[in-house]
Design a protein around this nucleic acid. Structure first.
Lengths: 141, 141
DNA sequence: TTGCGTGCAAAGGTTTTGCATGGCA
DNA sequence: TGCCATGCAAAACCTTTGCACGCAA
């Protein structure tokens, strides 16, 4: 993760950022970005994609996640709509969908853990694995 | 992840299982296993380690986790002592240590999410990222 | 013109697979 | 003996790095 100056505007950065913004409610992998660029007939070297994502993460405008089975990282653009720190990221281990749920129970629990167990949870980074309602219905039938 | 018959007892399986049992309160990586075997002067091929771990996971006696920055998976032996489903796995993003904390707040929160948001959290698979007390002290100073 | 950004290829780390051999039952 | 498990090497995947060239300012 080289620390670059990141002082130039380039079309590579623009097109990657635009794709992330369009998909800010999803979690995007490097393969997703490659597939998008291919469909658009835009060539960007894979090293540039990784370096650009690293820069976005350092700037704090993108979050990087490693969740679940796959070893490939996921990235998400962060803005006012989804930077709420009291949002559960519920990830279904069956359909792999992620459900973002705002709920005061998360704040209460975080504060309890902080007060009683001396650990400051970063809710934005924490994923809850389990079964969504659709998949538990399927599993039971 | 080839599905093997796993019907023979071998010393390779024994030694790997013993190491996992000895470290059932930790999270063990393949590198940890390799280092242990090296120290014990026991040679086991790395493919055997991965295949053995896959079998243990299929049998349900070991859990596999991919957590945080490192792309290497962690494994943990599961038995009565640590299969408690109401245990927080708190992972410090600074020192990378994992703190397992039993707490009724987890049960309350899980039940709320189940009742109100229709999602069954698997607490054994869920890791809470954040800062432990030691590292927040360091960060402040 | 300066020096950062890019593309390419090579390399690094983790995990999987094919195949011949070894060893359990 | 029959068949599964192992070891080795190669390969697959994801990601990073070195270097020369291209391009933004």
């Amino acid at each position: 993760m080289m620390n670059r100056k990141n002082s130039y505007n380039t079309k590579q950065k623009d097109v990657i950022k635009n794709f992330l913004v369009e998909n800010k409610n999803n979690y995007v992998t490097v393969n997703d970005i490659l597939a998008y660029l291919l469909k658009q007939n835009i060539h960007v070297g894979i090293a540039t994609i990784y370096r650009t994502l690293d820069n976005f993460v350092l700037q704090g405008i993108v979050r990087r996640y490693v969740t679940g089975e796959s070893s490939a990282a996921s990235y998400q653009f962060v803005d006012k709509d989804n930077q709420n720190d009291y949002c559960f990221h519920l990830k279904c281990t069956c359909c792999n969908k992620i459900f973002d749920v705002e709920c005061c129970a998360l704040m209460e629990m975080s504060e309890h853990i902080k007060a009683k167990h001396n650990f400051s949870i970063d809710n934005s980074m924490t994923f809850y694995y389990g079964l969504c309602s659709g998949c538990s219905a399927k599993t039971l039938s």
